[in-house]
Simulated assay, not measured.
Amino acid sequence: MTKQALHIPFILLLSGLLLSSNARPIIYKSTDKEGNVTFSDTQTGRNKGEVVELKPFTPTKIVVPEPLPATKPDEKKPGYQQLTIAAPENHSTHRANGNITVEVEHDPESLHPGHRLALFINGVKVQESKSSNRFKLTNLSRGEHYIEAKILNASDKLLKSAACTIYVFRPTIRNNPPAKERPKPIPVPQT
């Protein structure tokens, strides 16, 4: 038995006692010389107080809620169960002149009608697709980039998202002046 079920007989017994005429207490109302009103079940002091007539108790029906049906763990809920960025790996470094392919996986494998997959780089939407899970990014600048894949419905409501951070390494060729034009190092005096 649940705790709620154990409380029901106690509540019914208590309300039955309150309803019986022998169990109704007598309440006295008294006012002291400073005007303070006091309610008590006994008469006190010089002021005997007046009897307060209580309205009859109206019982209420106790409704015990039905337990919710248990859901099976293997039942699939409607919507998308999973969304991941399969490639590139999170916190990976890329040296391909900023050209990267992003592969997204989601469950179920096909998007629902009216939904689309959008790709964001550093918070800016760069591509979207209703059928393809591959996005080709070209000429990403060097540095850190935050990639986010989002499944959106027709009114742009976010349904599921996944994110990763990548680092793009792009070598720089510096135009160093010829050796004869380079300034000579200043000798450090030896002590």
Results as ranks from 00 to 15, higher is better:
149 A>S: 12
79 G>K: 13
14 L>G: 02
35 G>H: 10
34 E>K: 01
139 N>A: 15
14 L>M: 07
183 P>A: 03
42 T>E: 13
66 E>G: 06
58 T>S: 14
35 G>C: 06
131 S>C: 05
26 I>V: 12
177 P>E: 15
186 I>T: 11
77 K>T: 15
135 F>Q: 04
95 R>C: 10
86 A>W: 00
29 K>W: 01
68 L>C: 01
61 K>L: 14
105 E>R: 09
179 A>M: 08
65 P>I: 12
8 I>T: 10
3 K>S: 12
160 K>W: 11
83 L>D: 00
135 F>C: 04
70 A>V: 10
108 P>N: 09
5 A>M: 07
52 V>R: 02
127 Q>D: 02
57 F>P: 05
78 P>F: 08
68 L>A: 04
150 K>W: 04
68 L>T: 12
97 N>R: 03
36 N>K: 12
171 P>R: 14
156 D>R: 11
53 E>C: 04
185 P>F: 02
190 Q>I: 02
12 L>M: 11
2 T>Y: 12
184 K>C: 08
150 K>F: 09
176 N>L: 11
86 A>T: 11
5 A>S: 10
75 E>N: 06
52 V>H: 00
72 K>T: 13
117 L>G: 00
170 R>H: 11
75 E>R: 00
138 T>R: 10
81 Q>A: 09
96 A>F: 07
108 P>D: 14
143 G>S: 15
76 K>R: 10
27 I>Q: 03
132 S>Y: 04
136 K>S: 14
28 Y>H: 06
17 L>I: 15
138 T>E: 11
